[in-house]
């Protein structure tokens, strides 16, 4: 898909979508959104960028390999559960701290793990199935 308009467009839209995906992730505990939706949007933005500029460009933006994101996401989720086991004696038991008026807790960390993993999974599939030779 070699279109100048698309290429220029996605170059602008991609960062916006990435920011939007983080926004979805952060507000997801209280409003529509969350790790799954946010991760999908982030992956879609990079896939779109890859479609117009080539997957290698998309890989360059991502910097790390998507498999690394899968591992990081799964690890984050598992660690957030282990914190519950360590502090409250039950795996995945939630722990909450208040920082000012903002509440932070292990479920949020878990959602971050989901986000990272979904980005990694989708991009792994997109990059693999696009079958473009890595540069």
């Amino acid at each position: 898909m070699n279109s100048l308009i698309l290429r220029t467009g996605t170059t602008f839209v991609m960062p916006l979508l990435l920011v939007f995906s983080l926004f979805l992730l952060i507000r997801g505990h209280n409003l529509p959104g969350g790790g799954f939706a946010g991760g999908l949007v982030a992956a879609a933005s990079l896939a779109l960028y890859g479609l117009s500029n080539g997957m290698n460009a998309s890989k360059a933006v991502l910097r790390v390999r998507p498999e690394t994101l899968i591992a990081a996401g799964l690890l984050t989720a598992v660690v957030s559960g282990a914190l519950g086991l360590a502090v409250r004696g039950s795996y995945l038991a939630p722990i909450w701290w208040s920082i000012g008026s903002v509440k932070v807790g292990t479920p949020i960390l878990f959602d971050v793990g989901v986000y990272l993993l979904v980005v990694g999974v989708v991009l792994t599939m997109v990059f693999a199935l696009s079958a473009e030779e890595p540069s």
Partner: peptide, 20 residues
């Protein structure tokens, strides 16, 4: 349903790769 949608996507991606 939310998890089901995402899981279906994962399965479909796998099936597409397998088919290819």
């Amino acid at each position: 349903i939310l998890t089901a949608i995402v899981i279906s996507f994962g399965v479909l991606g796998f099936a597409l790769a397998l088919t290819d």
